[in-house]
Design a binder for these strands. Structure first.
Lengths: 190, 190
DNA sequence: GTCAATCTTGACACTTGTGTCAAGAATAAC
DNA sequence: GTTATTCTTGACACAAGTGTCAAGATTGAC
């Protein structure tokens, strides 16, 4: 059981992501990750150095998948349809798991004071990239609100963050979907 | 230095609130509070039992003040003016302090998994009460959006939560105000 | 087959935080 | 003034978590 690495890096990061998503950066321990991955804690230190290094890798993977999913949801239909699909995947993302895991980006953002510059930068980066994706999707969509695309994108992204908080506060998936539907109605009515 | 309580309860809770607001429930330690209040840690345990008991008192005070301020901001003007005042005080609340303290409710909500039922209930309660206040203010305001008041209130409250996250993610007071202004425009345009 | 490089493993040192407690000190009631 | 009550204080026990390290095991290159 030594000499060659006993775990697959892809699997390990996926496992770590799951742990971080469920517990948050601060509350997830190296022991949690090691146990979940069936690996010794020391092996993780040997391979990655410290917890934050693992988190950054896991978060990067999460961000890619998240932005990719969001982008696809925003690719088809008119503005109304795009936003509907977009909020659907956003809400599914944050209400998935049992118990629901919430939104990792938002959770990490709220830990921001206790986090390093690298972590803070990732969080800000995801939101900025999400804004860009939303803005572009609205710019090229039929029936988009008569609001400058960048401003609209910021409002939409801000609202998604609000949904993430409401989820943590105990509101159900259905309630989040209702809120999103009302929001979309307000934005796209003529 | 014994025999009679060496601190004023009102002051102590105010000090504790300041500490919790800056550091969060989880990261604030009894030592932090004791030091800030110029009191021994043991005295806090003697007077309150544990950290959560202090937090609940501090949070209740915060909630009262917060809801009161929000209610007053929503009391005058038409729908547009009310929302403008409302978001102003909300944003001032979360960008106050140096460094900015953020929104205590939101921060606490995101810690929810690590918190007790009592804490979770307070967070949910504040948001529900806030919804009610907003809903009533919109119901009685001129120029309110043609959206059922409860739905509108949920969207507005959700958006305030989004602003709180954006603040933590590094967006400036000005950016938050811009976002709120755009949001209000979208809601109240005819 | 040898051997250097690399991984695993368990123990260790350290830090930080919680909550408890006994002893001492001051107060307030009588 | 005496005394029971209450508060303060510092020490203590305990629990988690981080990060380090030496020793041992295995592998792969040669």
């Amino acid at each position: 059981m030594a000499g060659a690495r006993q775990f697959d890096e892809q699997e390990l990061i996926a496992t770590a992501l799951d742990v971080f998503w469920r517990k948050g950066l601060h509350d997830a321990t190296m022991q949690d990750i090691a146990t979940a991955a069936g690996v010794q804690r020391g092996s993780l230190y040997n391979a990655y150095g410290d917890k934050e290094a693992i988190f950054l890798r896991a978060f990067d993977r999460y961000a890619e998948q998240f932005l990719d999913t969001a982008g696809k949801a925003l690719a088809q239909g008119d503005a109304r349809g795009r936003l509907g699909n977009f909020f659907d995947v956003i809400i599914v993302n944050m209400t998935g798991g049992s118990p629901p895991r919430g939104c990792l980006t938002t959770r990490t953002a709220l830990d921001t004071a206790a986090s390093s510059a690298a972590v803070r930068e990732r969080v800000h980066g995801v939101l900025t990239r999400l804004e860009r994706i939303v803005g572009e999707a609205m710019s090229s969509a039929a029936g988009a609100p008569a609001i400058e695309a960048n401003r609209l994108a910021r409002v939409v992204v801000t609202f998604t963050r609000g949904l993430a908080v409401m989820e943590r506060a105990g509101f159900s998936r259905k309630q989040l979907k209702d809120a999103a539907a009302t929001f979309i109605d307000a934005l796209t009515r003529r």
